[in-house]
Design a protein around this nucleic acid. Sequence first.
DNA 1: GATCCAGCATAAGCTCAGCTTAAGGTCGAG
DNA 2: CTCGACCTTAAGCTGAGCTTATGCTGGATC
Lengths: 289, 289
Amino acid sequence: MLDPRKLLLLRELARRGTIAAVAQAVTFTPSAVSQQLSALEREAGVPLLERTGRTVTLTPAGHLLVEHAHAVLEQLERASAALAAARGGPSGPLRVGAFPTAARVLLPPALTGLTRAHPGLVPMVSEIDPADVSAALRAGELDVALVHEYDFVPPVTDASIETEPLFSEPMYLTDRPSVAAARTDPWITDRPGTLCHTMAIRACQAAGFEPLVRHHIDDFGTVLAFAAAGQGVAIVPHLAALDPPPGVTLTRLPLSRRTLAAFRKGNGEHPAIRAAVAAFHTAITHLPL
Amino acid sequence: MLDPRKLLLLRELARRGTIAAVAQAVTFTPSAVSQQLSALEREAGVPLLERTGRTVTLTPAGHLLVEHAHAVLEQLERASAALAAARGGPSGPLRVGAFPTAARVLLPPALTGLTRAHPGLVPMVSEIDPADVSAALRAGELDVALVHEYDFVPPVTDASIETEPLFSEPMYLTDRPSVAAARTDPWITDRPGTLCHTMAIRACQAAGFEPLVRHHIDDFGTVLAFAAAGQGVAIVPHLAALDPPPGVTLTRLPLSRRTLAAFRKGNGEHPAIRAAVAAFHTAITHLPL
DNA sequence: GATCCAGCATAAGCTCAGCTTAAGGTCGAG
DNA sequence: CTCGACCTTAAGCTGAGCTTATGCTGGATC
């Protein structure tokens, strides 16, 4: 019988590309991953990996098996979720990931509502950029996460991740009437690698220029303070700009940011996940949107 | 992560009822099965088995998990079948089960056609009564089997077995114009426990009497010889009565017997299974139906 | 072209999951 | 009351699978 643990390694390899990266993701040594994949190949009776020099690539049969690995692992996830439901109401640790604004604005009311409704639940929050959420969910480091996606940034489609939309909010530009009008201004963006950074760059590119990025700041409160100090312009989401500092004017852009809940596919029926998503929805109704 | 091997044991327990029977089916000791199920229960975090004295029964949570076990094991079966397809054409051993008449009439032409089309395939045939096929398939002792079902006998529905209809044939009664006319005759049936035996009993019950069974004989050739010798009446399928001995008259009954191919769910795309079923279909076209 | 290093594979050893055998408890049938 | 069927627990052993150590290959860098 095929071993789901080996299938999981193969799936990670398909996504990460190198055995070393897989090993790091599952906190094994590369040697262990190599041995497991070799064993899987032996059982499969058909080459799954092609070794070309110091790199490995999946064969067509390997890709085929990855598709089936998704299906198998999703069914196992469903089974686990069903068991969690059978154990009774939501309880135990629940690892929650959230981008900074959500952690500040949405999570406090959501968590109080969640723990009030389910005292046995112990939510554990980690701030995490949406770009890293898929990997963290797959690795089991998170159970549910708040992510966002922008008009300009295509959403991460991951066959093993499922999302549920929560709400949408408009974006604002500081001190300028339009993005195009900020062509020659210094910009304040999030750090490279974050989704917000990509969004700002893409928005400027759509307006026909490359932004002159002077500051890299993740916290929108600090961003607005910098803007108020004349250090540059920035694009900020509605929820981060509820109470702008004096001297900063905000212009609504024809851009929106959508916030979603993400979790492993098949895990949506897990009572703790259901409860968390429900708590998110409830908390949203009290948000000043 | 849930272990599919443990899930398989739980599924077998749901079907067989006792740990000892499961152990026999998978050729483990009962101790090993007990330990594995205990471990599964521990991982599940919820009681799956209820021990009442010397017997065990599944809890509702146990039954729930069995449903998910079906889904998981089916997906694994699909993955294996896909790998077999990736290995290339059908090859290797193929364990075929068949009831006696099929083994005699259908298999010889089907096997010659099969091995001619796929020289790498090594079919290994075992005669087996349809009543035992499900267990043998699940246990991996067979890959594909020829089974039949009668009008009077409800088909065995097994969540992990899939069937494909092959053909249907009429049934005949020896030396009497109707089943009701054989009320006081001695009967020749298959051995108790076989599907054919059940069919004969049910047919008589439907005609309003309990048959007086004198002989238990599985081979229909022998049955017809006995009938010719005046030893009793019998119900025989068309394919077993192509060449009746002198002195036996056959009356067609408003009964039919359907022959099907059976295999593990999810395994239908296995190239060897596909090839075998195709060969069955081809062989049928040459059958004198 | 020499050097470095990132990446993978293999060898050797060790730990633990999971099997077996052995022994004991429980309940129903005769 | 005894026997037998059934399950569990204890103890021991084997092998799968992990780690560490080592070696090989090929691309990047100077």
